[in-house]
Design a protein around this nucleic acid. Sequence first.
RNA 1: GGUGGGAUAGCUCAGUCGGUUAGAGCAUGGGAUUCAUAAACCCAAGGUCGGUGGUUCGAUUCCACUUCCCACCA
Length: 481
Amino acid sequence: MNNKTYITTTLPYVNAEPHIGHALEFVQADTIARYFRQKYGKENVFFNVGTDEHGQKIFKKAQEENISIQQFVDKYSDRFKEYCKLFFVEYDNFYRTSTKEHAQIAQKFWEICKKNGDIYKKQYSGYYCVGCERFITEKELIDGKCPDHGTEPELKEEENYFFRLSKYREILLKWLEENPEAVKPQNAYDELKKIVSEIEDISISRIKEHLPWGIDVPNDPAQVLYVWFDALTNYVASIGFGTNEEKFNEWWPNTIQFFGPDNLRFQGAIWQGMLASAKLPHTKKLLRHGMVLGADGRKMAKTLGNIVSPFEQAEKYSAEIVRFYLLAGISTFADGAYKEDDLVNMYNARLANNYGNLLNRVIHLANAKEVNINEEQNVEREFKQKVDEYKNEIEKAYEELEIFLALEKVDELADWGNKYITEKEPWSKELTKEQCQTVLNNLSYLLKIVSQLYYPAIPISANKAKEALEKREKIILFNKL
RNA sequence: GGUGGGAUAGCUCAGUCGGUUAGAGCAUGGGAUUCAUAAACCCAAGGUCGGUGGUUCGAUUCCACUUCCCACCA
């Protein structure tokens, strides 16, 4: 049986510093990657992240900063690498779209679509907003002005290449009908169906003269690939598409793509259409996570002064605590407000008071009573059954990408452990040594499982906890905040 | 502006395919206790389920409108 799972995030566009939303996505994907690695082995997971480095905005930003574009993208790409490191995001591949190799594969993808009759040239005339740097449809205009900038767009004419996305409308709808599990959560699935039912052909190139920073259209150096067409191909390129078919065929069938609410159209409709055109299978699982909002429940914005800096947060609380909060305190799929009070409460309640404290109770008592623990074969059957029941439920949640839910249940299991130890009173002098040993050994098994199930979210602490238990060393893993 | 999604205890969220007293965790208050990070354990209080109207014997759950929030609009 092939257990290989390929996990990829969206490639962030490198026109600015990483923000907390990037952390959410990276950390979610990393958690799932770690879960699968732990469960099925390292060799069965391939985790891709990277940066999207072409397009108008980057071109312009580099000019503003007065450095070469390559320097600019190198700088920001490095920032994202550091960012991953900061939050313990352990990727197998960091993909960059500004490499020569990527250009070749994106062009190859283009040629396949072209060969299959899905790319054609069309005179395009429309309203162009300089502020947005894009064409705006007539429907979008408000009083003849751009809805975002309030300025009057210019009439502009351009000959572009178009992708025959409309050809795949029915095919994609059928795919969705037949695979209700393909998109998480349910409302993203519903939304995608609606988007797909209305898809039209899309422009997939730009005139090079306007945008010198991009990948040349094959056989037409006057045009460059539209940045989205170019970037989307990374999902297959990173696992060998166009370079290593065997590797590609091994990984692609079981793919999980993580992305944000603004990306549903691209990952769910356009990319799936591109895959269909290239005669490749659709993505197995699309996970649309939510948006991290400011503490006031509004979208973070400079003008609202509610921006949460991931760097400051990591500095203030430690990156792992921030990581834990993003996973356990903010819904996996819905928008959620980042509130420091919640972070503190959640950390104290779940990690310090519940998990960390139970760990110390058990280690301390085992040492004081000089009894054996960590003997899995001696765990009472009924107790083991109960713990394994939790374990199965939690693993099921992880497999279904329900991270928030999984972590809630891990907390429940630790909580049950605290109730158990209170009820059994292994500190009581009325218990025989054997009875005491049974209780503490049972609990050592529970703690091992809890640590294992917490590991994908808080890898460093969970490993330390496991070690402390094995060595019977009492430590304060989670200092209260 | 158009379209889609959301609004349930102080906070984070479950839930109701319409039906007697709407659930959990955290936070709060009280009790009991001390093996442990003054942690854990037990109990309690907390909500006209965003607003208005409609369908219905009955709506938090269905429908319409409305307010606020989020996203998208090649």
